[in-house]
Simulated scan of single mutants.
Amino acid sequence: MKKYAILLDDTFCTGCNSCAYRCIQEFRYHDQASKGLFRTFVQINDDGLYQKRCMHCLEPDCVENCPVKALTKSEYGPVLYNAQKCIGCQTCVRVCKFHVPQFDADTKKIVKCSMCAHRISEDKKPACAEVCPTGALQFGEYEAMKKLAAKLAKEKKLKLYGYEENGGTHLFVLAKEDPTKFGYPKVAKKALKGKVSLDGGIGVPAMAALAVAGFKKYSERRTRIEAEAKKAKK
Rank of each mutant, 00 (worst) to 15 (best):
R94F: 11
C113I: 04
S74F: 07
L37Y: 08
Q32S: 01
E59D: 15
Y29N: 12
P101F: 15
T40E: 10
T107I: 08
K69H: 15
L49S: 02
L58A: 13
I44G: 10
K85D: 07
P60M: 00
A83R: 08
K124T: 00
C54R: 03
C86L: 02
K108G: 07
I44T: 12
E122Y: 05
Y81S: 03
V93L: 13
F98D: 04
V111L: 04
V42D: 06
N45P: 14
A83I: 08
F38D: 04
Q43T: 09
S18I: 12
C128I: 03
E122R: 12
Q102W: 05
C23R: 01
H56V: 10
C66I: 11
Y76P: 12
V100Y: 05
Y81M: 09
S121F: 06
A33Y: 00
K97L: 10
Q51V: 14
K35Q: 13
C62A: 09
K109V: 05
R53G: 00
Y21Q: 14
T72R: 15
I44H: 12
C54D: 06
V95P: 10
C62W: 10
Q90F: 13
Q90G: 11
E59F: 15
A117E: 07
F38P: 00
E26Y: 13
F41D: 12
E130P: 04
Y21D: 13
T107H: 07
C54N: 00
Q102S: 09
C57Y: 02
P101T: 09
A20V: 10
E59S: 11
R22P: 11
C62N: 10
F103E: 01
I120A: 01
S114W: 04
V63E: 10
C66E: 13
C96Y: 15
S74D: 08
P101C: 06
T72N: 11
E26F: 14
V63Y: 11
Q43A: 09
N65R: 03
A20E: 14
S34W: 02
R39M: 00
G36F: 06
V93C: 07
C89W: 04
Q90A: 15
C96Q: 12
T72M: 10
R119E: 03
V68Y: 03
D104H: 08
Y81V: 07
Q102H: 08
G77D: 06
H30G: 15
Q51T: 12
K73A: 00
F41P: 02
R22G: 14
P101L: 13
H118Y: 04
S114I: 09
Q43M: 11
K109I: 06
T107N: 09
Y29D: 09
E122N: 09
I120M: 01
S34N: 12
N65M: 08
Q32V: 02
M115T: 02
E26C: 14
A127L: 09
H99G: 03
C19Q: 07
L71H: 12
D106I: 14
E130Y: 02
V42A: 14
K73C: 01
D123R: 15
R39S: 02
K73Y: 07
P60W: 00
K108V: 10
C96T: 06
E122I: 08
A105R: 10
A33C: 01
V100C: 01
I120F: 00
K35Y: 14
G36T: 12
C23G: 10
F41W: 15
C96E: 06
G77L: 04
E122G: 08
G48Y: 00
F98P: 01
I120V: 05
